[in-house]
Simulated assay, not measured.
Amino acid sequence: MIREVFILDANTKVEMAESDRKNITIHQLLEKSAQSALNIQREDGSFPAGRNYTYDEPETPVRTTSHWAVTLSEVYKITGEDIFQKAANAAIDYLLSDEVRPYGYTFHCRDATDKDQCNGVVGQGGPIRALSYAGPILGRKDAIETAIEVFALHPFNPDLGLWERVEINGKKLSFDRTLNHQVLFAAAGSKLASESDLVNDRVEAFLNNLETNMRLHSDGLIKHYVRPPPIDVIQKVLYTPRHYEMIINELVYHYYSRSDERRKKERGYHTVNLSALSRIKRSFGEHSIWESNTIKRSLKFLLINKEELITKIDTKHGSGLPGVATAKTLYWLGNRSSEELCELVSIDVSKNLDRESYLLYSDGSNQHNQAARISLLVDFPNIQLSL
């Protein structure tokens, strides 16, 4: 069980941190957290479902199980212990089950009224990442093949550089207009690039179009919606009417560009977008996008506003671990040393860690998702943290 943690006030928390500081490596932390996760894994290999904390929407166990599959397989690779191999395989078995893909198309990720059950392309990114990450470690060719299959069934337009959403019953739902959804889906697929020419070509085409699709405010803040060239959008809608939402996208784009409320949301997702791009760079490091003004300006905004973005002032949106997302961005996109990033990761983990179970902790309905997010640490080298 994930126990409740009570903190009297901010000053008490600081004093406790100073008097009870502990050094631990990322590998040690992952192992301790995975050990506790064994106690909450269900008989079918799944983990308790979370809720989308931003909108408080009910989710299926797909997201949490995907995160834990990554962590458990990584800990098995680190320790070689059979218990983690068994648990990781059980999680993968669940993600490959008919329950998760009831129609044989996309993963069933949420049950929210009047919203798709696939949760756009971002919902699909989690299980694709899990299958592509754990598959090679566990020797699960079936996991890799399924990841490629689900990635490939999402229609991709190379002219616009965007993926379409596909409902769990196979119905095509037009393009996902949210930038971080597109970036996270590309990041999930990037690890499959060496396994599939189709995946490699589509992620590369996505990067080729990113400067056009990823629009920035004048100060470098990343805008929430993609914005392909309007003429290209009109042509696509004329030929394929289901893309009519892209016309709406063009109309609301200008309104949202001047909205203070939308800007708060975009500040929350700035680190999400950049940390996902940093994952893509690991597989597509030679692409010219990384030296573009678009990336440089968005990184500059991150550096100037780092403290506010990490503390998520005036926004509930974005990463549950913004310090970790920032550290990942600076390491892979900003070419900072791992030593420089220890403080960012240490502070973020310290604020969220249950010191008995070594599970990441969050109040309310987000607790299961937050605990599973320990998987985000597998992208770092085995640096030493100070908790």
Rank of each mutant, 00 (worst) to 15 (best):
L303S: 14
E145W: 00
P61G: 07
E31A: 14
K141R: 13
C109A: 15
Y103V: 05
E99C: 04
R227M: 13
P61N: 07
L302F: 01
I7V: 14
L385C: 06
V5M: 12
G323Q: 13
V378C: 01
L184P: 01
K223N: 06
K296E: 14
K328I: 07
A90R: 15
L29M: 07
Y361L: 13
K141S: 12
P322E: 03
R202L: 05
L216F: 02
G120A: 12
F6K: 13
D142H: 04
R215F: 00
P322R: 03
G323S: 10
G123A: 11
N11V: 13
S319Q: 08
L138C: 06
L251V: 15
I347F: 07
S73M: 09
I7F: 07
P381E: 08
G170A: 08
E164I: 02
E356Y: 08
L173W: 00
I248Y: 03
K351E: 13
L30V: 10
L131K: 03
D354H: 07
Y53I: 12
G135Y: 01
P229S: 07
D354N: 14
L153V: 09
A130M: 09
P322K: 01
R262A: 08
E340P: 03
P136F: 00
R129L: 14
Y244A: 11
S278L: 12
I313F: 05
A134R: 03
D379S: 10
D82H: 09
R129P: 00
L359D: 03
P229F: 00
R258W: 04
A34E: 04
I148R: 08
N23L: 14
V183K: 01
P241M: 12
R177T: 13
E43P: 00
D197H: 06
D114K: 12
A91T: 05
P381Q: 08
W163M: 07
A276N: 10
T12G: 15
D379C: 03
P158V: 06
L72V: 03
I248R: 11
L330C: 09
G45E: 02
E266A: 07
N180Q: 10
N180W: 02
E167Q: 14
